[in-house]
Design a protein around this nucleic acid. Structure first.
Lengths: 130, 130
DNA sequence: TTGGTTTTGACAATCATTATCAATAAGGCG
DNA sequence: CGCCTTATTGATAATGATTGTCAAAACCAA
């Protein structure tokens, strides 16, 4: 009773459409892109594929300020966070090993399990700072 | 011709209800609290008051992992973060000095200025874990 | 090919949030 | 103190993203 995962062109289409973009995209946006490209994929399927990719670590997800879920193909394997320019939207992936440890430690110190953390740094990038 | 803003008991009620909790609350949650406390305030008003407080810098806001907007009164004295149970809402204040330093360092290392950070840990508290 | 399961997709259902808009009340002024 | 202008309220409709439903289609091992 291992989780039988199947390969479908839909999942592959989502994975590919995601890697073709190097910025964050919403599920709705990816859906539109795919549809415009002639794919007859369904909206619910895009949501499911993205959620699944995020769980598997192939995609990153974060919440935009207005509450929309945004996804991006994960360049680096492993867990990491983001440094986002609040003016131009430039996004840099950053590793946060000290923060990972800290989150784990502080969670279990308080009896919490299954910690997830929201760690993102917003600022002005070099060019927008001028 | 500064923005003609009026003082209403509704706005004050929201501000007060917010400061009485020093954890994060959703607009819906605050609305329920106020209603349970006997206030006949309207839902839309709570949303508007919270948004306005956030703009004025009297409240901070963040997005929970499931896309809900959470608010807390902006405490000018001391900067701290939260460990939040995503099942029962229990909130524990945590200090995050190592994270503060890390955020500063990683931002400037990438040429970013004026860093702000969103650092919150969600998990299941001891009693909800089982 | 076939059978058992997983996955899909059209659409309904949810849920938080925002827009609408008539009714209300705040604040300045005489 | 009353009046007038206008910001604000609040019941409700509308919006928009996301998730649930479930029959039909696709996948894959045998």
């Amino acid at each position: 009773m291992t989780t039988a995962k199947r390969n479908t062109w839909q999942r592959e289409a989502v994975r590919e459409a995601l890697s073709e973009r190097d910025d964050f995209v919403s599920a709705q946006g990816l859906y539109s892109t795919l549809r415009d490209g002639g794919s007859p994929i369904g909206l619910a399927t895009v949501y499911r594929a993205l959620a699944s990719l995020a769980v598997e670590g192939e995609a990153d997800s974060l919440q935009s300020p207005d509450g929309e879920a945004l996804y991006r193909a994960c360049v680096t394997t492993g867990h990491h966070h983001h440094l986002i320019c609040r003016n131009c939207g430039l996004t840099v992936e950053i590793s946060a090993d000290p923060v990972e440890e800290w989150a784990q430690r502080v969670a279990s110190a308080n009896g919490f399990t299954e910690p997830q953390h929201v760690v993102d740094v917003f600022g002005l990038c070099a060019s927008c700072s001028r």
